[in-house]
Design a protein around this nucleic acid. Structure first.
Lengths: 117, 117
DNA sequence: CTCCGTTATTTTTTATAAAAAATAACGCTA
DNA sequence: TAGCGTTATTTTTTATAAAAAATAACGGAG
């Protein structure tokens, strides 16, 4: 049996550059779990330098810090999510979830009777 | 004054590979206007070979022809949109439009009070 | 049969994005 | 002071995507 036609939706927040999207959300979630940018990037199969640039760009665009990062010290330092960062994550998750549900309904309305194959 | 935060939504239809998206829609619209893949691609600043691959992939995934293409003859041939292709375009446009409206409402709900700057 | 302007297809080149690597800095510990 | 494990940053390399180029085929007109 062949795979059915389906719809992928992506929501990205922009200013001059991309400010927030699904990749960044995922990265932040892993940072939250590990307390480390390096471990988070590694978990995602992402180059550390890429992860670092994503966060740097997003924070510049948003105008506030998503993470608080320290280097050096007992365990070498680490990263943690700021309250504003956490709020952003929660809002984006809720926004995406609700949007996805609505789009699913619309997709059924327009493409629900597509044959599979 | 700085640009405000806003949201970009993209809707892509998939099977194994990407089957339909905003780029392909645009390409088909220019083909409809010009009756030529070459002119349409040129209009979009797109390489002809890329345009050709996009259509070929989409038609393979969807399982039906979006365009009917002829080469040779009086004016060298050309491309026209099949009835199924036209229907696909119309459905995708309506789907996107309605989804965009709903997402705009949601965006306001979640991010409508963001400061600009 | 040759010319024309298109589509069809493959190959080569270029541009872009990502990864990898290398180095520095940080600040605590011992 | 040296070592550790992290973040910070730049440079180099690699991978991917797109563009460009080249060639063939098509089929009607002259």
């Amino acid at each position: 049996m062949q795979q059915k036609l389906y719809c992928k939706m992506t929501l990205r927040l922009w200013k001059e550059e991309k400010a927030f999207g699904p990749g960044l959300l995922c990265l932040l979630q892993w940072i939250e779990q590990y307390g480390s940018m390096q471990k988070a990037a590694s978990q995602m199969g992402l180059a550390y330098s890429k992860a670092w640039k994503m966060i740097k760009t997003a924070e510049k665009e948003l105008g506030f810090a998503l993470t608080e990062r320290t280097s050096g010290g007992k365990n070498g330092g680490g990263s943690r999510i700021t309250p504003q960062g956490k709020e952003m994550m929660q809002k984006y998750i809720a926004f995406s979830k609700e949007a996805q549900m609505q789009v699913n309904v619309l997709y059924q309305k327009y493409f629900g009777n597509e044959v599979e194959g």
